[in-house]
Design a protein around this nucleic acid. Structure first.
Length: 338
DNA sequence: AAAATCGTCAACCGCTCTTGC
DNA sequence: GGCAAGAGCGGTTGACGATTT
């Protein structure tokens, strides 16, 4: 017996989202907050299934998402974490709060996997392939435990290993790149920093939390705000161009709605900052009030970027090293002892 | 210049997990 | 405790631009 697909309805639209749809969705979320996706299609009139709405939001429209170029730091973290956790993208994404699991997954499949394979590490790159990676076999690929106790132990092990991996990654990165050197992408996202704040709180509170749950708790950041409004303005831009005979999907950016890819690729994301402050918003034809939900953009520290992120992670890691229970990353609920 | 191939990424699908009743 | 609905996750696909032949 096959369960009917959730979107198995007539009149449910599929395929790429249009800027108009994005706008509707963003407006809705601004007003009601993320969640209750089931209600979204009916309340917004979008001809999309709830799942599709949630996906679009979490992977694309959600505030604080950084797109494009992965930094060395991010890359190394991903490699380490993948080696340790396996293909648990949501878990990995929780350590990279500016990235979505989908993004990380794509990046892994298209860049890192091949890269590691090329490195002659053997295997299919799925775990263990990381040259400097540690565990012979991703924890996630060990036989699944059925009992809850076992599951918890496994989780704890994962966390422990992730911790070590992060520490290693960060340590090695210290050699590679001084922490005071914000990379273009992060600086640009401006936001990056802000979200990191969110990362430190939302993501950090529960590393195991899914990226999506991050979305729902998503302590809105100015960064996200920027990105969202900016995205929308770009969407409309791209859409207009497209309608005017511009290129295909890519022409409008990565997707009809996102010129963003090109933006980051070219490192011209300074545009983000430039557009911050309302111009993008007006371009998006969205009332500023519509973004109330996302709120209170006061991140002055647009440059808080990597440093903030790292310091949050580092403090967690080094709390471990010091034998201190930092608790912020690992909720007491985990009952994790160091 | 045209065709073929490759690379990238947004979106879909189906399954599992969580939550509320 | 059992069930149903909703939410989340990971794998996969398909469309499109870029590059190579």
């Amino acid at each position: 017996m096959v369960r009917p697909p959730c979107c198995d309805k007539d009149g449910v639209k599929k395929g790429p989202w249009t800027p108009e749809e994005d706008l509707v969705l963003v407006s809705y979320v601004q007003e009601h907050g993320p969640g209750n996706w089931r209600a979204v299609p009916t309340r917004t009139g979008l001809m999309r299934c709830s799942k599709s709405c949630r996906l679009r939001w979490t992977n694309y429209l959600r505030p604080g998402i950084k797109r494009g170029n992965f930094t060395d730091q991010e890359e190394k973290l991903i490699v380490h974490l993948q080696a340790l956790l396996g293909n648990r993208w949501a878990a990995i994404a929780s350590y990279l709060p500016e990235r979505t699991d989908n993004d990380i997954k794509n990046y892994w499949n298209t860049h890192l996997k091949r890269k590691l394979q090329g490195g002659g590490a053997g295997g299919d790159g799925d775990g263990g392939a990381a040259g400097d990676a540690v565990s012979p076999k991703p924890a996630a690929q060990r036989p699944a435990s059925s009992s809850k106790g076992q599951w918890e132990r496994r989780l704890q092990t994962d966390i422990d290993m992730a911790r070590r991996a992060l520490r290693e990654a960060l340590t090695s990165l210290d050699d590679v790149k001084p922490p005071h050197q914000p990379d273009a992408a992060n600086a640009a996202a401006g936001g990056g920093g802000a979200t990191t704040g969110a990362a430190a709180s939302a993501g950090a509170d529960s590393p195991a939390a899914s990226s999506t749950s991050g979305a729902s708790q998503c302590s809105p950041s100015s960064a996200g705000y920027v990105l969202t409004t900016e995205n929308i303005s770009r969407m409309l831009d791209g859409w207009a161009r497209k309608k005017g005979g511009g290129g295909g999907r890519r022409a409008a950016g990565s997707g009809p709605a996102t010129p963003g890819a090109t933006e980051s690729a070219s490192g011209s994301s300074e545009a983000s900052e430039v557009s911050y402050g309302g111009t993008a918003l007006s371009a998006a034809a969205a009332p500023a009030s519509a973004f109330e939900y996302e709120t209170k953009p006061t991140v002055t520290a647009a440059d808080a970027g990597d440093e903030t992120q790292l310091s949050a992670i580092e403090s967690w890691l080094f709390a471990d090293a010091d034998g201190i229970e930092s608790g912020s990353l690992l909720d007491a609920a985990m009952d994790y002892t160091f």
